[in-house]
């Protein structure tokens, strides 16, 4: 598998080529993605933008191995995803990817600590280590003192921090965030984005879907979707000089 990616993009975490996705409707197949090709390298921070219906959410679902493309190639961390079965994609979601959602998606009846530790349950980490790692990450996002609280006791911004801690608990290479600030006020959004930037500095690759330009400014690279195609792909202007962002 790695032979395909070897020479040119040795460090590519995500590589998609000619990706198509069409949904079956009563009126026939409805194309959502039309030949999308994109490479994202280790350590990048990419914002995916575009209006509703442009295909960016579908693209994220495919990147997250939650959905399968109708055509084209998707190589995640050197693995051809289309060749994997359901259990293997579940393993990728567990180990390689961390998800952050717009609606936080914490389990309401579990303490924050248990929420953060949940991904570890599915890869058989024992109870003591689960607890320890969950505490570590809650401390990292500044919520160590709420370990035993339930999600409804804390604010939305804090819940999103817990969700980020959960995404990080299995030490993924890649974080996929789908409108992570969509439910937050602008001040809290800035805090969350600062946290993402910090994680990115630590070497985690981040792909973020947003439709807010000022949120996208935090990313190092911006990709814009329109009608199922990438119409714009460039480094963020007033962030860093292009040369330093582009790897290889």
């Amino acid at each position: 598998m790695s032979a395909a990616t070897a020479s040119a993009d040795a460090a590519a975490v995500i590589e998609v080529a000619g990706l198509d996705k069409a949904y079956d409707t009563p009126m026939g197949p409805f194309p959502v993605l039309k030949g999308v090709s994109l490479a994202i390298h280790a350590g990048e921070f990419v914002a995916i933008m575009g209006p509703s219906g442009s295909g960016k959410s579908t693209f994220m679902n495919i990147l997250g191995c939650l959905d399968r493309p109708s055509g084209g190639d998707y190589i995640l961390d050197g693995k051809h995803v289309s060749a994997l079965d359901k259990d293997q994609t579940a393993l990728l979601r567990n180990r390689t990817i961390g998800f952050v959602f717009q609606g936080f998606n914490l389990l309401p009846r579990m303490s924050l600590e248990d929420n953060v530790a949940l991904p570890l349950v599915y890869c058989g980490v024992d109870k003591e280590e689960r607890r320890q790692r969950a505490r570590e990450l809650l401390a990292k996002v500044g919520l160590g003192q709420y370990a035993k609280s339930l999600p409804n006791r804390i604010s939305g911004g804090q819940q999103q921090r817990v969700a980020i801690a959960r995404a990080l608990v299995n030490r993924p290479r890649l974080i996929l965030a789908d409108e992570p600030t969509g439910n937050l006020d602008s001040h809290t959004s800035e805090e969350i984005m600062a946290l993402f930037e910090e994680l990115n500095r630590e070497g985690i690759t981040i792909v973020l879907v947003t439709h807010e330009p000022d949120i996208a400014q935090h990313a190092k690279r911006q990709v814009r979707f329109l009608d199922g195609r990438i119409v714009h792909d460039a480094p963020t202007h007033h962030d860093l000089p292009a040369g330093e962002v582009q790897p290889c």
Binding site: A90, Y122, C123, R166
Partner: peptide
């Protein structure tokens, strides 16, 4: 249903 979706997203297999 939503809880199941979350669990799947963070790596639960069908058999889990």
């Amino acid at each position: 249903t939503r809880e199941i979706g979350i669990r799947m997203a963070i790596g639960a297999r069908e058999k889990d």
